[in-house]
Design a protein around this nucleic acid. Structure first.
Lengths: 307, 307
DNA sequence: CATTACTATAAGCTGTACTTATGCTTAACA
DNA sequence: TGTTAAGCATAAGTACAGCTTATAGTAATG
C-alpha cells in the first residue's frame, strides 16, 4: 500500500522542483528524499520523476500520482481537524503556570509546538512558585502547571494528574579564580567555609540548599539573595560567594564564572507537570501534557549543557 | 500525521467488531492490532473504541475517523489503480516460459502473488529448456522467461534484460544403504566408480554433471536417464545408481533416499529471469520481474531444504 | 466456579528509514 | 578548457517502529 509520508515527499518535490530543496523544506537530508522517491518509484514500478542536471520534473505517471496525493492529503488533514474539533482543541483555553526557570526553557519550546498543532486554543502563562500553584489548581484558577519537588516531598494529592518530566540536577557556580575552581568534581562538604549566594530564603530552592548543607554537616553562611539566576550569576562573578544553580537555569552561563558538578549525588529537583484529576481536565490539557513530555524528552536528548 | 496502515486497521476493527477477528482478517496477531489501535488513540488524544467484554464498538470520535478513513483509503485505491493503468497492468498479457524445476517451485509462488496484484493481466506459462527459450524471447514469442546458466557460460546477449534470482546448488542422492551414505559431506572424486542416474544426455544439466565429473578426473558411467526428477529419485531409491539433483527439484524428497552435500564447492546453476531489452518489454514484465525477485528472496529466506 | 472470549502489556527481534559520508554528472563561468 | 557549484545516487551505520511470542487480566457464559 502506498505510504502517506512518501506521497507528501513526492508532492513537495513536485512543488519545489528539486529533491534538495524539498529536503530543506521538510527538514530531511537530500539523501532521505532521494531514497523515499526511489522507494515510491519501485512500488509504482515506473519512473515518477525525470532527472535533469539542475532539478527534476514529473513524468506523466508522477503528475497523476501527485494529483491523487493532493486529494488524499487534504482528506487526511480534514480527518485530523475533525479529531481536534471533537477533542475541543478548536477554541477553548488553557491557563498555565510554571516556576521561573522552566518558564525560560521548557515552556517556550512546548508552547511553540502546541501553537503549531492547535492554533485556536487560547494559551496563558504566569510564573509562580510551587506552593502557590497547587491551591490555584485546586481552585480551578489554573488548568495546568509546571512545578518542582525535592526528593521525598510531594506537594500533590490524589486529586491531581501528575507527570514527571525531568530530573533537574543542581550545579555549583564559582568565580573563576576560586581556589576550588580547578577541580572538576566537588563534594558539598568542601564548601562549608564559603560565603553563599542564594534565592530568597523563603523559596523552596533556598530551603533545599540549606537542607543539603545540613546533610553535609554545616550551616551555610548566606551573604546575598536574589530570585533571578542571572543576578545570582552576576554576584558569583563579582566574587561575593558561591551558589547552587539548577541546570534549567544554566541555559545561559556567563563566561566569567565556572560551573562544577557535585559528587557523589548532586541535589536534584524533579520537574512535574500537574493538572486536576481527569474528570476536571479541560480538553487542551492532555494535549499539552503530551507536548510537554515530548519537549522534556528533546531537552534530555540534547544532553546536559554542563558536562 | 495519521498513518494509512493504522486507519486500515481501525476500519477493519470497526467492521468486525473485535480486535481479534480483525487480526485474523488482516493476518496479524491480536497483539499487533491492540498496539496499533493504542497508538492511534494516543495520536488522536482520545478513545476511539469502547471496550466491551466480548468485543469493541466505536466511540463518536471513532465513527468520525472511520468515516474519513474510508474516504481516504478509497482514494488511495484509486491512485494505485491509476498507476496500474498507466503501467499497462490493467489488461494486457504476459507470456512466460520456465525450466521444469522452477515451474514446480518458484513460479507458482510468483504467479499467485502477481495475480493478486494485477488480476487483469492474462498470464500464460510453458515449460522449456534454456536453449529453446532464448531464441523464442528474441522472436518475441515470449515476454519473460526463467532459465538457468552454469558457471562462466551465459546464454544471453546484450539485447536481453537479465536478473539473477538465485544460485541453485546440486546435491547428491544416494540409496540409504549405500556405502557412502553415512558421510555428511562427499567429494565428487569419491564417486568415480558409481553408476549414475541422470536427466537425458542432451539436457544442459546432464552435460554439466558430465563436465563436473571430468573436472574431478573421471568419466561417469550413466546407467539410466529420466527428465523427471521424481523418476530420478525413484531410480536412486531402487538402487540403480546415484544422481546429482538441484535443490529446486528437492522440494519433495522421498524418504527412501538420502541427500548429501558435495564439498568443497558443489556444482551450482544460476537461476536467471530474462526478458527482451527494456524498449521491447511488455508493461507487465517489469512488475513480474519484481515479484520474481521477491519470491526468490522468500525462497532463500526459508533456508535450504537440505542442510 | 470453571471456562471461554476477549483485550492489554512486556520483552525481544527485524526491517524501515533516517543520517553521514562520498562519488558522479552536468551546467555555469572564468 | 579547466574549475566550481548544484544536484542526485549510493554505501554504511544507527535508531525506532512495529511485528511476534508469551503472559496476565477481566467479564460474560454455561
Amino acid at each position: 500500500m502506498l505510504n502517506m509520508a512518501r506521497l507528501k515527499v513526492l508532492k513537495e518535490v513536485a512543488y519545489r522542483g528539486s529533491l534538495s530543496s524539498a529536503a530543506d523544506a521538510l527538514s530531511y537530508t537530500q539523501s532521505a528524499i532521494s531514497q523515499q522517491i526511489a522507494a515510491l518509484e519501485s512500488e509504482a514500478g515506473m519512473a515518477l520523476l525525470e532527472r535533469h542536471p539542475r532539478g527534476v520534473s514529473l513524468t506523466a505517471a508522477g503528475q497523476t500520482l501527485v494529483g491523487h496525493a493532493e486529494g488524499i492529503l487534504a482528506r487526511l488533514d480534514a480527518a485530523e481537524a475533525a479529531l481536534s474539533e471533537i477533542a475541543g482543541l478548536r477554541g477553548g483555553r488553557l491557563r498555565m503556570a510554571s516556576f521561573p526557570t522552566a518558564g525560560a526553557t521548557l515552556m517556550p519550546l512546548a508552547i511553540a509546538t502546541f501553537r503549531a498543532l492547535h492554533p485556536d486554543v487560547e494559551l496563558t502563562l504566569v510564573e509562580a512558585e510551587p506552593e502557590e500553584i497547587v491551591p490555584r489548581l485546586r481552585a480551578a484558577e489554573l488548568d495546568l502547571a509546571l512545578l518542582f519537588e525535592f526528593a521525598s516531598e510531594s506537594l500533590l494529592g490524589e486529586d491531581m494528574t501528575r507527570v514527571e518530566l525531568l530530573v533537574d540536577p543542581m550545579y555549583l557556580a564559582l568565580p573563576p579564580n576560586h581556589r576550588l575552581a580547578k577541580k572538576a568534581k566537588l563534594r558539598l562538604s568542601e564548601l562549608q567555609e564559603e560565603a553563599w549566594v542564594q534565592t530568597s530564603s523563603s523559596s523552596p530552592c533556598a530551603r533545599h540548599v540549606v537542607r543539603c548543607c545540613h546533610a553535609a554537616g554545616f550551616e551555610p553562611s548566606v551573604s546575598f539573595e536574589s530570585d533571578d539566576y542571572q543576578t545570582v550569576q552576576g554576584l558569583v562573578a563579582a566574587g561575593v560567594g558561591v551558589a547552587l544553580i539548577p541546570e534549567l537555569a544554566l541555559s545561559v552561563v556567563r563566561d566569567d564564572i565556572v560551573i562544577r558538578a557535585l559528587s557523589p549525588a548532586p541535589p536534584v529537583r524533579r520537574v512535574i507537570a500537574a493538572a486536576p484529576a481527569s474528570a476536571r481536565l479541560v480538553p487542551a490539557a492532555p494535549a499539552m501534557l503530551g507536548v510537554l513530555e515530548e519537549a522534556a524528552t528533546h531537552y534530555k536528548a540534547l544532553g546536559a549543557p554542563i558536562g
